[in-house]
Design a protein around this nucleic acid. Structure first.
Length: 201
DNA sequence: GGAAGGATGCACT
DNA sequence: GTGCATCCTTCCA
């Protein structure tokens, strides 16, 4: 698959900037023999060491969080509430636990399959409007943990065709991390303005 | 071996 | 807008 261009976009020391540049790119999967694809419309940045909301904060290193210390472009898939799979992109160099959570997609391909997996009655923009739902719609689960998003052909990221206007990017506080004390007020959640597929807008 | 938790989703008011 | 079901994994003893 792939190239240095994408690697440069997805890896680096500034996880917040990467969270912004991920907006407008496509997340693709080829699972169960079906290609599904959607434009990333919502992300959140998690900065390892100094961020209380991050699983790997204060250098916490366990079997679960070790993937976040991998090199940029690695997928970190984590099971939440025993039910929902959440998809992250690890973004920093090996040894530093930064990651971007992908919270919502606007489906562009494989929509029949997504409907089958989620709910065949739902309108397109409600198939991936939430981190748990998007992984379900795309068939992602923990076997895709540690997958290389830059080189895999099973789960990968495609750069956006056209540039996203900065004015369309909205920054706001992150969701579902009330336990993170003051860090929950950081404006590290980003989404595309006026996009129906965003989980809360 | 077991207790605790959790980056949600949905039903319901 | 708010409340809560839910259940697998993780981590510690």
């Amino acid at each position: 698959m792939n190239n240095d261009y994408l690697k440069n976009l997805l890896t680096g020391p500034d996880v917040v900037k990467i969270a912004r540049s991920l907006l407008g790119m496509s997340l693709c999967s080829a699972i169960d023999g079906v290609h599904t694809e959607g434009i990333i419309v919502e992300t959140e940045a998690y900065c390892g060491t100094n961020d209380k909301a991050c699983h790997a904060h204060l250098g916490k290193f366990t079997n679960r969080t070790k993937v976040m210390y991998e090199k940029g472009g690695t997928a970190y898939v984590y099971l939440c509430y025993g039910i929902h799979h959440l998809v992250n992109v690890v973004t920093n160099e090996k040894g530093i636990a930064d990651a971007v959570l992908i919270r919502a997609l606007m489906p562009t391909d494989g929509i029949d399959m997504m409907r089958k997996r989620v709910d065949k009655e739902k309108p397109i923009h409600q198939l991936c409007n939430g981190p748990g739902k998007l992984s379900k719609a795309m068939g992602i689960n923990k076997v895709h943990n540690e997958m290389d998003l830059l080189h895999s052909s099973t789960l990968y990221i495609k750069p956006n065709v056209k540039e996203i206007n900065e004015e369309l990017i909205v920054g706001t506080t992150r969701i579902g991390i009330d336990y993170a004390e003051e860090d929950k007020y950081l404006n590290w959640r980003f989404y595309l303005k006026n996009n129906k597929a965003v989980s809360i807008y």
